[in-house]
Each structure stands twice: as C-alpha cells, then as structure tokens.
Simulated assay, not measured.
Amino acid sequence: MSGTQAWGFTDDRGTELGAARVPRRVVAYVRAGAALCDLGVTPVAVYGSGHDGEVLDPAKEGGLGAAAVTYLGPGRTLDEERLRSLRPDVLVDVTYDGKSPYALDEAVAERLGVPLVALSVGGELTLGAILDRFAALATGLGARPDPGGRSGGADPTPAPPVTPAPPAATPSATALPAAERALREAAGRGGVTVLALSGAGPEQVHLARPDAWPELARLAELGVRLLDPGPGPGANWLTADWARAAELRPGLVLFDSRAHATPPDGPLADVPRTAWNPETPPSPAAYARFFHELARTLTR
C-alpha cells in the first residue's frame, strides 16, 4: 500500500489492489456477497453466475434477502450502466483456478475503474484457509458486527476505525467449532455412508469427488464416511447415470440444492437426503448451519 492509499489488499490471484479510501460500496458475486453479509459487510448488490437466472436462487441467498440486497442477474450479462449507477468502490468475486474471476469479466471492473478482488474457493485450499481469507477481506472492508447478532452493513460514508471484538467473543467464532463437534459426534455413532451429488436431469448425475471440495474434505476429517465415485474423467465430478450412483449404495445423499440442479429420484428416491449447496457462502455461520443440519440427519 502506498502512502496515498488508505486501503490495500492482495487477492488470491496475487493481484495487489489499492484505493484512496476504504471501499464502502461493495458489489459481489452472490456467494462472496452472502459470506461478506454474514461477516459484517453488507453489499449494495450481488450478481450471479452462468448457472443463475434473473431471480436470486434461494439456495444461495443466505442473509442477502433479509438485508434487502439488490440482485443484478448473471454477472456475464449484467447491465453495466445499472452497475455503474450503484457507484461501487470494489467488486468481489471468487476464483477456482487462481487466475480469473469466476462470474464476472475482469474487463467490467477495468471499464468502471474499480478494484476487483477474487478469492479462491478451489480444492487447493482447506476450508479453514478459505474462511480465513474471507474474514481478512471483511476486516479490511471495515466489518462491524450488529449488536443484535446479525451482520451490520457497510456504510457508504467513511466510518471511524473499528476495534474487532476478540474472536472468542463473537458468535461466528464459536458457532462453527460447536457445529463441528456435533458433526463429529454424529458421524461417530454409526457407519452411514454419504454420497454428494448434483443432479443433471433424468439421465445424468454429477458425483462429487470428496477430495476436490474443501467442505467435503473437512467432513471426511470430522469422520463422515464419504463415498468416492471411482476412476473416470472429471476433476471435481464424475458424470454418470443414476444407476451408477445407486450402485455405490449410499446410506445418505448430499444433494445439490441449487435451482439448476435436479433433485435425486429414480433408484435414489427412497434414500435419506440432506441439502448441500456447493456454493455455500464461505463464512463460519453458513458452514455451521450446514454442519448442524447434516449432524441432525445422521442421528435420525
């Protein structure tokens, strides 16, 4: 950060970003925006990915709806003039390859003349490392916990420096460890095998490779018996038919709950299931909710 810059951040592409003042008007990819909202920085707007439509997917919403955050539609086709009218100070996206933002063309940020932060959510990082990076960004953007326990918004006007509460005193600091303890206990009670998948219509299903997904790798560390779909093409998913999924004989299905995915049916219709959003907001609160729900399902 130079002497003329009040704010600086190096994102997960290694791009050094700076601004003359701390950004207050944040526009973000919906996954990143929902995480920031949990962490105390409410975006002025969010945009979707190529999977998303003109209405915000309820599975991805998190606290954005309650915070009345504007949804702009898919990032690759958004109205740049509408985006410009929101006067963003910073854009926040995710990256899966450590090179390019996922949901927005970087040229949009260049035309607007605002920094674009891209944080990694790929399998090369642990879930803990991903959560730490989003927490660091939120802190850098002036995150302010709401006294009532909800996330506070990012004020468009400069605010005085914030002294963060000690980690043990904040709800998010204790929620995730408690959820992990509950999940470890639930996983240790029985030998339920779990298959994570994303339905792709009546003929196809994408079967998740647990090691490629930071949150699934964390589930395995906590004792959840995740099924690997076996050899075949695809780094994150093995694409097969539903009969192949049934052959793995899962005791529980983690199904992709996003709007574009097909719910389990056919040979897996009677298998117990719980929702899994492969784009869960990278915040302790969001993962605590997911882990608690999975723990409850495992103990039924």
Rank of each mutant, 00 (worst) to 15 (best):
L72Q: 13
S49A: 06
G75S: 02
G53Q: 01
G62E: 09
Y71A: 14
G40P: 05
L56Y: 08
A68F: 08
P43R: 02
L72I: 13
E54R: 14
S49F: 06
P43Q: 04
D52F: 01
Y47C: 11
K60I: 04
T42K: 03
G63M: 10
A59C: 08
A66G: 15
T70I: 05
G73C: 05
H51I: 00
L39V: 10
E61W: 14
A68I: 09
P43F: 05
P58H: 05
L39Y: 09
G40L: 04
A67W: 14
A66F: 09
V55P: 03
T42L: 04
Y47L: 10
V46F: 09
A45P: 02
G53I: 05
V46A: 12
D52A: 01
D57C: 03
S49M: 05
A67G: 12
V69S: 08
V55I: 12
H51T: 03
L64K: 15
G63I: 06
C37A: 14
K60V: 06
V41T: 06
G73E: 04
V44Q: 12
D52Q: 05
G73Q: 00
L56R: 11
V69F: 08
C37K: 09
L64A: 14
K60Q: 12
V55G: 04
V44K: 10
K60E: 06
H51F: 09
D38Q: 15
E54P: 15
V44N: 10
V69A: 09
V55N: 04
V44R: 11
G75N: 03
P58S: 00
A45D: 03
P74A: 05
A68E: 12
G50W: 00
S49C: 03
A68Q: 13
D57L: 00
G63K: 10
L56P: 11
A68R: 12
A68P: 10
G40A: 06
G62A: 11
A59N: 06
G75Q: 04
K60C: 07
D52R: 00
C37Y: 08
G65M: 02
E61Q: 15
P58M: 05
L39D: 10
G62W: 08
S49I: 04
D57R: 00
Y47R: 10
L56K: 11
V69I: 09
L56W: 11
A68N: 14
A66E: 15
A45G: 03
V69M: 11
D38Y: 08
L72M: 15
T42Q: 10
E54G: 13
H51A: 12
D52K: 01
A68L: 12
G62Y: 07
G40H: 01
V41M: 07
G50R: 06
G48E: 00
T42P: 04
P43M: 06
H51V: 03
G40D: 02
G53P: 00
C37M: 09
G53R: 03
S49D: 06
L39N: 09
L72K: 14
P43I: 07
Y71N: 12
G48N: 03
G62H: 07
G65Q: 07
G50Y: 00
L72A: 12
D38C: 13
A59P: 04
A67Y: 15
A68K: 13
G48C: 01
G50T: 00
G40Q: 00
V44C: 15
A68G: 14
Y71Q: 14
K60P: 00
G62R: 08
A59H: 04
D38K: 13
L39S: 10
E54T: 13
P74L: 06
V69E: 07
